[in-house]
Nucleic acid binder design. Sequence first.
RNA 1: GGGGAAGUGGCGAAAUGGCAGACGCGCAUGCCUUAGGAGCAUGUGCCUUAACAGGCGUGUGGGUUCGACUCCCACCUUCCCCA
Length: 834
Amino acid sequence: MTTTGKSRPDSDGGDARGNVDRYVPAAIEKKWQTQWESDGIYEASDYIEGKENYFSLVMFPYPSGDIHMGHWFQYSGSDAYARFKRMQGYNVLHPQGFDSFGLPAENAAIERGADPRKWTYSNIDNSRRQFREMGASYDWSRELVTSDPEYYKWNQYWFLQFYKNGLAYRENGQANWCPKDQTTLANEQVKDGVCERCGTTVTRRAMPQWFFAITKYADELLDMDDLDWPEKIKMMQRNWIGRSTGTTIGFDVSEYVAGEQIETFTTRIDTVFGVTFVVLAPEHPLVMKLTQPDQKDVVQAYVENASRQTEIDRTSTEREKTGVATGAYCVNPMNGERVPVLVGDYVLATYGTGAVMGVPAHDERDFVFAKKYDLEIRVVVAPPDWNEEELEEAWISPGIQVNSGEFNGMSSIDAKDAIANDIESNNWGRRTITYHLRDWLISRQRYWGTPIPIIYCDDCGTVPVPEEDLPVKLPENVIFEADGRSPLTKDSNFLNTVCPQCGKPSKRETDTLDTFVCSSWYHLRFASPNSGQSPLNDDQVRAWVPVAAYQGGSEHAVMHLLYSRFFNKALRDLKFVDFDEPYTKLTNQGMLTKNGGKISKRSNPLPPDPVVEQHGADTLRCYLMFLGPWDQGGDWSDSGINGIKRWLNRIWDLAQRDYSVLGGSVSDSAERDLSRIANATSQRVIADMNVFKFNTSIAALMEFTTALMRAHENGNVSVESWRSGVERLLLHAAPLAPHIAEELWQRTGHIGSIHMEMNPSYDESVITADVITLAVQVQGKLRDQIEVPADIDQESAIQAAKMATNVVRHLEGMQIIKEIYVPGRLVNIVVKPF
RNA sequence: GGGGAAGUGGCGAAAUGGCAGACGCGCAUGCCUUAGGAGCAUGUGCCUUAACAGGCGUGUGGGUUCGACUCCCACCUUCCCCA
């Protein structure tokens, strides 16, 4: 414990400063948290006369047990921003809730026998407590918990709308399977071949799965020109969608299999005359049909071996590319040549057509492959000054077509089009657009999620649950076993039902929805939280959405943020919303680390509660904001927190100083100086808060704090200037340190909450000083500084600069060849020896 | 391998073409104190110097400019994303 809590009879804060009690955060923070809540000052009205609505949303947490220091970092910043916007006169909606479906609850059930519902809701209670201790300005009246039936009912409703409109479908497919979590994963949830959540190597498994048709929106999702988002996130989404334009062309194999051809996709159709082999994925349906008898054993063994490898291994650039010949040949339609067909495991059946044309001269991978297997390397796009010599490495840049029949002499850029036209007119293939993006796999073979509202009837087939029967509730008291089967498949009360169409006994779907469905539309529900009979209230949605400012981590770049955009567009086309994008402006907070590593409860713990207990919530909030730029994150260290504590202590002391000692000997210049720094501080703080630069906002406020203390000690400012200075300091500090600002606001005689006040205004004309310091350089090196009137003209400034003592020395024996004056900043004199 | 971001005192950082190191930590000296993990004051990039002053300095090497942490080129290192 610190000594701050102990009462001491005299010395500090006493005597001339007006006998003030010490700053004890614990004594004021709880009090104001309770007061704010009972006054409901952060509850947003949908309309306030004369105020513009501003929806400032921060990504809601998964309630894993504790609000950890990373959460404090994220939520302190977003709360400070929301508070700042409120004080700029906006009608701000800043809600909070819990993304409470998901694997950890269920794993806790399997590992420790905890009931997922109890485990989750007790975590939520704890998280609510910690959010309150943070002093965050959330509108708790709009809180939502995604595992509540009132919420997930609408997930089911959206699913049904999507299903009816062809945006949700079920298909047999190879799914990513996590053997540990016993569930399927979307591509986005597989990182480096392992499960994003638990790190287990992902395998593939064939099973019927539900999908959302996100690829229908691939092109529209690429249009992000109007989004005020970090360029990095846009780039990641573009890469993830991975649109590439090219040509599909068929290589005839009818001499082996009647009427068949190998379809290949390429973005470099200009190199098609350089094809010297074709490679099939081991899973390609033509592999066995084409393989010649003497190659059967080799190919079979190769295919079997490939099936045991992960995709990551197979496509790794570290690994040498391997392949085996099938003994068959296919025909290049462009020149009628027969080229060998090989099988190679670096070609994946799931991408493109599952076959690639090999052009060793113009593709690095093919080049290496051809060298290894001694295949022809034929140049068809000539590098500049090429004279038929062999290439040292693949030439992948544009060039001039050679060995390309009628296209010889054309630039390869033009040839792309010309050859594609030729192929299309001969019906050998077609222009094709491919995407890396796959449809969103939403099925999870898990219990703790939203049941998919579908019933399977022997007679009627797949039947959607009627909307009036929603929600399909998750059963309680189910059996958990780590056997790869969802508890829902073993709960006969849940599983067995009757067909809504024919009334015959039928089975429910036992898959639950990916939890990213919950977070794809939660912002809409925050805007219209109380619509019991409909998912949304149109007026409320229109009042608040799209979200003006959205804050969250960049780890959601290709999952949540892409799904949300898709959801919004789908809901727009189904006439539920009338805007194109859900989040207008996005800001990423950086990651908070400890000793350079990720903070984790087990291996690298950093619990916030002890810090709050020792220093108070305001100190912790400000310290986290002061570490560095919010969008860059930072590394936690205990050492700096005292600086912030000292600053808050100084504010505490300063705001309560006895100002009756002032006013006796007011100096005009001291008044002007204080006014100048006061206005300059507001200008800096307002500009910085607007762009989430909390660190420099705090630095400006610290400087202002020091200036106020100096003014008081010198005793030469008026009571009015002093009081308005203190007021200004408290108002600017309020978004960052809400409790101490509120307490001091009250103690300095104000009625009502400081958080309902407006930011102080500033006058730019006051900020400019009448006398300024100019830097004087000779040859660009600083030699002296001069005090001059602020409105000095160029000629006088240069005159004065030349007379500065230390400048004279450097001008001796030199002739001046150039003089530069940067108004208000510096004079630079360029010289050379006579 | 491709794409992106970053590299500044002992430390967190500021400055995005104009006085590098604001603000804070730490450290040093002094004041106050019975006491200090409290408070206040002063100092604090490196080198030379008694001082005035000078030299060097923002990962490395070039370039543009009167002037470069900032812009351009090449390279090194770290982190992130993708393969």
